[in-house]
Every structure is written in C-alpha cells, then in structure tokens.
Design a protein around this nucleic acid. Structure first.
Length: 742
DNA sequence: GAGTCCGTAGTTTTT
DNA sequence: CTACGGACTC
C-alpha cells in the first residue's frame, strides 16, 4: 500500500506493529515523525481503528501542531477526532472536565513560574522564613522534584523527620499546596500530578479514558518524567497498545525531572515489548554523523546504536577558535552574510546555537548593525513579560475571582494609590473572614483602618464587575481592548514615550492579535479557554519556517529542529560543558559524571541539527559577569577526530602561555590570522609562564591542591581564582602564587 | 505611598 | 556587567 512506499525495513515494521507495547529507538533525523504519522494513518486505513481511539502526545505545541497537520494531510476526513496534544494540555482538558471530583473548581487558573515565585514569597513571609538562608527558588525546586516523583506533602513530611531543613521544606510544601488550592490554581506539575491522582481515585474516569485511548503514541519519550510515565502507564494498562518513540542519546531534561530509565527500562516495565531501532539518517552528511557518533560514544550506559546515511560525505566540519567572544560573533555573522550574498542560502537556512541565553546578545548586536533579520527563541518568554502578565492578570481576575495573586498584581496597576500597607490590611481581613482577597475588596468599607484607601478600591471593584458583564459575550479581543481602555494602561505607556514603553505597547498589540487569532480558530471561544491556551505556550511554538530570518536559540530549544547550516558557538570548557557539570560529583551507576554525560548528549543534539554545514566556534576569552574568562576548547570538540575538521584553531593551547619565543610550538593549522599573530607577539613580551587554565587541577605551596575556577587578566599579571580542596576559594596573582599544574 | 539609589547575586537548560 | 530587590528619602 501507499503508506509503506519509500520506507526502509525497520520503518515499515514500526508502522505495521500496531498491537502491544512498542519502543521505537529513533536516532536523530531517522524519520520518526514520519513513522508516527504513517503509523496513525495505517491504524485508521488498514486496521480500521476509529480515529476517536487514538492519542498522540508530544512535548511542545509546535510538535503537536506539526504532527496534527501531517496527519490531517495523510488521513483526511475524520482525523480531527484524534487527540494530538502535549502532556500538559491533555491534562488540562481532562481536569477541566473532572477536577471537581478532587475538590477543585473547574475554572482553575494555571500558575506559571512567575506566579509560583510570588506565591512562594508570600508563603515565606507568612511562615517567617529567613529567605537569606533558604531561598524561595530552593523551595520551589524541591517541591517540583517531589511532585515529579509523586510525593505529596504528607509523605514528604513523613520522610523529613529529624532534618531541620527538610522539615521546613515539608512545612512550606504543605502551605504552598494549600494556598494553590485556595486560589483555585494549579502549577505546571499539578496538571500532571492531579490527573494521575484523578485516575487513581476515580476508576470511572480512568476507565472512560482507557476505553477512549486504545492506541497511544508518545513522542520524545526519553524526556518523560515519573509522573508522565505513570500517566501513560495508567492509560495504556487496559489495551496495552502503547508506542513510544525516543532516543536515549537525546535525553537532555534530567534537570527538569526527566527520567532516562523510562526509556532504558521500557522493555522491563512493559512485558513483551518489541523494540525497533531506526538508525538510517536522512538529514545530515556522513561527516556530520561521524562527528556526532564520535562524541556520543564517550557516554557509558546508552543503548548501542550508530547512525549512518546514504547521503554523501559532505563538507568537513568548520572549527574556528577566535580570540574573544566579539570576534566569534563577528565571524559567524560575516559567514552568514557572505553565504547569503553569494546566493548560496537564505537567512532561514541558518541557526546559531548556544548553551546559555546570555550568549545571544553579542550575536544580536552584530545582526542589528549589519541589518540582518534574526529571531531569538527563548530568553524572556513573551507571556512572561510584565505588560503581558498585567493584562493577563486582569483577564484572570475577571475569569476567576479566587485567584488572589492576580488580583493583588493589578490592584495597583496602573497606580491607584493603594500600597503595600493597604494590601496587607485587606489581606488580614480576608484571612480573618476566610474569604478571597477579591471578596474582601468588595467589602472594603468593612476592613478596619483602611480609611481613604477604601475609596480607591471601590472604582477598581466596579471596573472588574463591569468587565465581568462584558466577558459574557465571549469576545476576548473586545474584552482586552476594554480593559486597556478603562484602565488607561496603554495611554500611560504612550505618555511615557520611551523606547521601552513603545516596545511594551507593541507587545500588547501582539497579544491582541493573538487573541484575535484565537477568536478565529477556537471552536468554542471563552475567556478561560483562551487563558489556558496562553498559559501553556512555549517560545519555540512561535517559530515560523516561512519567514526569512536567522534563528538563534539554546541547544535545548533546538531539539527536534533541523537547518542546512548550524553554528555551535561557545564551544569552550567551562561554558559547554558548563563549569557546574564539570565540577559536579554526581556519579551515575556506571561511574561516569552524569552531568557531563547530559551535556554531551546536548552536544550530540546540536551536531545532529545540521543538514549540510556544521560550524563549531570557540572564543579564547570572553566576558563573564564583567570579568574576562580564558578557556580552552570544549572537551567535546576534542572528541571529534582531526580528519573531520578544518579551520583555524589550536588543539592544545587555551590560556595564552607567556613563554619564550623559542618554546613556540603551537599547533595552529593551515592559517594563522594576523590578529592571532599579533596577539602572540604581544604576549611574548611578558615574562610569565602560565601552563594552566580554568578547570585545571593545580597545587599551591601553602594551600595544597585545588581547581582553577577563574583567570582574570589584570594588566601585566593574571588574577587566578582557585577552589582549594581544604581551605576553600582563594584569589591570588599568578606571579606570586607559583601554582603548579598537576 | 512612591520614587530613587545602592548593593548584591547571578548564568544552565523550560512545559 | 546587568537586573533585581531592599532600604531610604520625599
């Protein structure tokens, strides 16, 4: 049949294995999306499965959208009955229907990271926790990990006996959860956790969904966490037609609770599971794949596989080590500019990838000055911007009066002369009477000692009430415009007249167009439905293939994407792999530093994004927190065999060593740029002999052994920071320290 | 209650 | 270096 044409043998097998548990180990670029979509079509057309019984889960909305589109094209009529969804939006959909069985209101609000932070701040204040000693962030991450492992507040408390910090955490966890419930709000982790709880508590609901989802497919399975696993397990328990697709080499979200053993142990967890490997790559050249294989094979404890391709060898991988981060940005941008001018490629054929968001700035500056269109994915999420959050807080308040956090956010935005003291008094009142913050506002006259502030509260309540009436007619665009109009929010920004205010206005306009777009596409538009959609978008979702711009993003965001030209930038030890991971002592079951292994997988992901040309760049020095950091080439680069590489770089040298010219044996290949030559010459005029760099182990006469954590150029000398094993961190001048490399 | 200034901490990664 | 938060002042 047509569906199987032009597929290789394992792909065909994956498509035709429709019954029972199936693990598809799909290497990068091996056509897994194609397999998933064709498998879906096969289920419907050949196996006569009702589309209503199929569920496909992805990680991002973008992936879900793409899959939906491709399935629609393949299946045609009836395909809309298939659930194609992210974990989170699937859970929201289920919870909106049944969460009242867990004692929540179905109108619940979803709290994002920002909301969580402000809630946590309140809680710490209330529990009189010294946030200098215990950070809000720490509590949130502890709670998140607990939720990911499905440990509730009570169990957490039971495990916390004895340990003071743990007991405090348990106390905060319980209070946090209570506050969320009182606000009728759920955080991201709750969406998953409460769905699992619902399934476990209410067999009727579970059976209902088990009957519905008789065929389940999960994409990016290597990034699922324990709750997600449980969710899938429960759903698939009855019919056992579970197909998961993933690549253990691309597991890069451990920090977020992803459990790599979900994929490594799939065959143990699901009896009689079949495993199919897809190793033929259709994306990259052989050279790129060789490099990727060379890097990833340094990881221990992975499922054996080796990518191959029928594509040609292709170009060698360009490796450029520049003097500093400015030259790195310059090199990359000029290279892109040149290739576009030569009509070899268009802007959209290029992606610049980096480890940390902070690295994007230098590239951005270059793009602006050269007038090259670009798009930065990530950084501050659109929906996390202040002005957007303000508008959304109005909408949330209108839609859900129990959401105290949103009400408090906007009560004095724009300024109404209601300050912290008044808010405190109202809060006390609401706690005393066991009512919502908003309810307290409605009875402002009854709040003791509020005085004149009560007169300022009244217009606010009237505003919200009139907006609630307006929201009845379901037009979100009209509602937003009315809010902006009535509050004078935009007018205030216009009056400000700064560039920043202008940018905020543009963002608000964009929100309005998004709302307009929503009104057009939603089946049954409503305020709450709009808010939930908005709460679950990721920045990557906004990436548009049809617009001609260069894309800049972190390696994490790049997963699942591909580009003809990829620049992996900042390939320096200490940056990538990060200093944190290098010095981590977390050892996995195989005796390897599991954090460096995760970074290596990230590198593997980066390399395999490239279809035709891969360029690796590194800077010898870069400004980090206002200090010049010197680093050597990333260890990952050194894992790539020499014969796959071309370009100007030095394998060994990292820190400028101030040696006598006679000792010069820098293995610079092929070409030494004039600037490099100049640097060498000026360097040789010094009299120092530094043979160590950041990350190296050194010994000091008095302090013993330690690791170099920073190397700052300070005129003629270098200021070295060393983290000593016994005496802690010391800063010293290299001339006097007389450190010996170990 | 609001605005300004100064000090400190922070850089992984995000649904 | 930058961004945020806290303290201080008007």
């Amino acid at each position: 049949m047509d569906l199987l044409n032009a597929m290789n043998a394992p792909q065909k097998e994956a498509v035709m294995t429709t019954e029972g548990p199936l693990l598809i180990l799909a290497g990068a670029g091996s056509g897994k999306t194609r397999v998933l979509t064709h498998r879906t079509a096969y289920l419907i057309q050949e196996k006569k499965v009702d589309p209503y019984h199929i569920l496909a889960i992805t990680f991002t909305n973008k992936a879900a959208g793409e899959m939906r589109e491709r399935i629609d094209r393949l299946v045609g009529f009836g395909s809309e009955a298939i659930w194609v969804s992210t974990f989170h939006s699937m859970c929201v959909r289920i919870l909106r229907r049944y969460i009242d069985r867990l004692g929540y209101d179905t109108n619940f609000t979803i709290y994002d990271t920002d909301d969580q932070k402000s809630l946590m701040k309140d809680i710490c204040k209330r529990l009189e926790i010294d946030t200098k000693m215990m950070k809000e962030k720490m509590f949130l991450s502890v709670i998140s990990s607990a939720k990911n492992e499905m440990i509730g507040p009570i169990e957490f408390a039971n495990r916390a006996v004895g340990d003071f910090t743990k007991r405090k955490q348990a106390e905060v966890y319980a209070e946090y959860q209570r506050a969320l419930k009182q606000n009728n709000a759920l955080d991201f982790d709750d969406l998953l956790l409460l769905t699992v709880e619902l399934f476990k508590l209410d067999k009727e609901v579970l059976t209902n969904y088990q009957e519905r989802f008789r065929y389940i497919m999960v994409d990016e399975y290597q990034d699922t966490n324990t709750v997600q696993f449980e969710l899938i397990r429960l759903l698939a328990m009855k019919y056992k037609n579970l197909c998961v697709v993933g690549d253990d080499d691309q597991s890069i979200y451990k920090f977020r609770g992803a459990n790599i053993y979900n994929i490594l142990n799939f065959e143990k967890q699901f009896e009689d599971a079949k495993v199919i490997k897809l190793e033929q790559n259709y994306r990259s050249t052989q050279n790129i794949l060789d490099a990727a294989n060379a890097v990833i094979q340094n990881n221990i404890g992975r499922k054996a596989k080796r990518l191959w391709t029928e594509n040609g060898e292709g170009e060698k991988i360009q490796l450029e080590q520049l003097d500093n981060s400015y030259e790195e940005a310059d090199y990359v941008v000029r290279d892109i500019d040149r290739k576009v001018r030569n009509h070899e490629y268009r802007y959209q054929d290029f992606a610049i990838l980096y480890r940390t968001n902070a690295q994007s700035r230098l590239f951005e500056e270059r793009f602006i000055s050269k007038n090259i269109p670009y798009k930065i994915v990530g950084g501050v999420n659109f929906y996390a911007r202040k002005e957007i959050k303000d508008v959304l807080a109005y909408l949330k308040t209108i839609g859900n009066g129990h959401d105290d956090l949103s009400v408090q956010r906007i009560l004095n935005v724009p300024k109404r002369g209601i300050g912290a003291t008044s808010i405190g008094k109202i809060m006390d009142f609401s706690i005393e009477h066991g009512c919502d913050f908003y309810e307290a506002l409605c009875h402002a006259d009854a709040v003791p000692k509020l005085g004149k502030a009560a007169d300022k509260v009244r217009p606010f309540v009237n505003l919200i009430e009139s907006m609630r009436v307006l929201s009845q007619n379901k037009d979100v665009v009209e509602l937003i415009k009315a809010v902006l109009d009535q509050t004078g929010y935009v007018a205030e920004l216009v009056a400000e007249g700064t560039d920043e205010a202008q940018a905020r206005i543009e963002n608000i306009d964009e929100l309005i167009s998004k709302a307009a777009d929503y009104m057009q596409t939603a089946e049954t538009p409503s305020l709450n439905d709009f808010l939930q959609e908005v709460a679950l978008v990721a920045d990557i979702d906004s990436l548009d293939e049809d617009t001609d711009y260069v894309v800049l993003m972190t390696l994490h965001s790049a997963k699942g994407l591909e580009f003809p030209n990829v620049y992996l930038t900042g390939m320096e030890d200490g940056l990538f792999p990060s200093y944190m991971s290098i010095t981590s002592d977390e050892i996995d079951g195989n005796g390897a530093n599991s954090e460096v292994e995760e970074e290596r997988r990230l590198c593997y992901v980066g390399i395999t994004r490239a279809k035709e040309h891969l360029t690796l760049t590194a800077a010898k020095s870069r400004m980090v927190r206002g200090e010049t950091q010197w680093s050597k080439l990333s260890r990952f680069v050194k894992e790539i065999p020499d014969d796959l590489l071309k370009g100007s770089y030095s394998r060994e040298r990292e820190v400028p060593r101030f040696e006598s010219p006679g000792f010069q044996n820098t293995p610079v290949r092929k070409y030494v740029s004039p600037s490099q030559q100049r640097q060498f010459e000026s360097a040789t005029t010094g009299a120092m002999n530094l043979n160590y760099g950041v990350g190296d182990r050194v010994s000091h006469m008095k302090f013993g052994e330690g690791t170099v954590t920073a190397l700052v150029s300070g005129g003629r000398d270098y200021e070295v920071t060393v983290d000593f094993d016994t005496v802690g961190t010391k800063k010293m001048f290299a001339t006097f320290a007389k450190l010996k490399k170990l």
